[in-house]
Design a binder for these strands. Structure first.
Lengths: 203, 203
DNA sequence: GAACGTACTGGACCGCCAGTCCAGTTGTCC
DNA sequence: GGACAACTGGACTGGCGGTCCAGTACGTTC
């Protein structure tokens, strides 16, 4: 589909430049301070190019996020246990949560930017956030599956949302900025384990 | 402090009008679609007045939120158990979470707007979100206290943040929009109870 | 290696919005 | 009823996300 015709050399070069410039800006400034024009300038291209390639602020952030999350996606699908298939669901869940904390810790700015982009754009389309944000969808699905495998009596879908929410809130992001990633991971492990051992629910 | 001199009659009238107009707009439109100018027009005042009274978009949303959360604050501080003092911490916690879900369910638009306002303004000041959002601070403190009372071995501060995060995420807000408040409350109860019964953590 | 069609480029441009400013108005106090 | 401060409101500013389209340079074809 995308390969019908290989991306033109200059287009590929600029795409990389834009993603790179975005990363650098995110490392240096708060996401809301970064305008698309700045990204374009930093990448040495025109604003039109940025929008041509990525459609919108949100598209750009999604592309970047997808790239950053790629390794985790692969580790989960085809890598070795406990992240990959093979280990018991409970272990995989804890390992996965740890890994997600890690990805997020190394991409706080991006996460915040994504949140901001989502919010900004939400008004224009009433699409489901999960559809709009494939990385989140994958994470959520994975957590929900593992949770359901271990505890079919729980509302796994929703618990998965809640666990993930704990990683994207403002307070959490603030914590990560202070280098407390391990503390967050620990808390999440406790929470996940507690959930796995929770007293069975009456209907 | 604020009472040194009672608010002038016209000022009070306009403040009410602005808050009311904001509520009505929030009920009808998505928060990001509502501009401060619209609020002003709907309230029948000039834009300058809105900013004079509330300082910024965020200030307006905070004022509205504080008003909406007032009943809960009072119920917790001086009301009857299980919400108010008197009941065991575990019961108070569950009751409080239910109450917060209720407040949030009845103010989804406002919550989303607050999130948006926070994000928008965050760049300008590097204040701690808790300071910036007193209602959140109160909720968080209360949950953390109750949690710590029952389970001193937990990272109550952080777990409280995580529980609250589950109420403010985009997915959650989406759920609430679909009238699934009870489902969310149930999931939170399960999670809180699980946490209260969690296996003790090794240091 | 030259000519051609097309995908890509970039910056001027648009509409919009948060927040500022200040001259005029109105309520309150003495 | 006069004086002073607080309040008011709308014109204005700066900046942003996103569009548009004329020009450019890439890859292809002969």
């Amino acid at each position: 589909m995308t390969q019908d015709r290989p991306e033109r050399a200059d287009a590929a070069r600029n795409r990389r430049a834009i993603l790179l410039a975005t990363e650098e800006l995110l490392a240096r400034y708060r996401p809301e301070q970064i305008s698309m024009e700045q990204v374009a300038t930093a990448a040495g291209v025109g604003k039109g190019t940025v929008f041509h390639r990525f459609g919108s602020r949100m598209g750009l952030m999604h592309a970047l996020m997808a790239e950053r999350a790629l390794a985790l996606t692969e580790a989960v699908s085809t890598g070795p246990p406990p992240l990959g298939p093979g280990a018991p669901a409970a272990e995989r869940l804890v390992a996965f949560l740890d890994a997600v904390v890690d990805v997020i810790a190394r991409n706080k700015g991006l996460l915040a930017a994504l949140g901001h982009a989502d919010t900004t754009v939400a008004a224009k389309s009433d699409e489901d956030p999960r559809t709009a944000h494939p990385v989140y969808g994958f994470w959520h699905g994975h957590i929900a599956d593992l949770l359901a495998a271990e505890r079919p009596d729980l509302d796994a879908e929703l618990q998965a949302h809640i666990l993930l929410a704990g990683l994207q809130s403002r307070s959490t992001l603030l914590l990560l900025e202070q280098g407390e990633a391990e503390r967050l991971a620990a808390a999440l492990r406790v929470l996940a384990r507690a959930l796995l051992h929770a007293p069975t629910q009456g209907g």
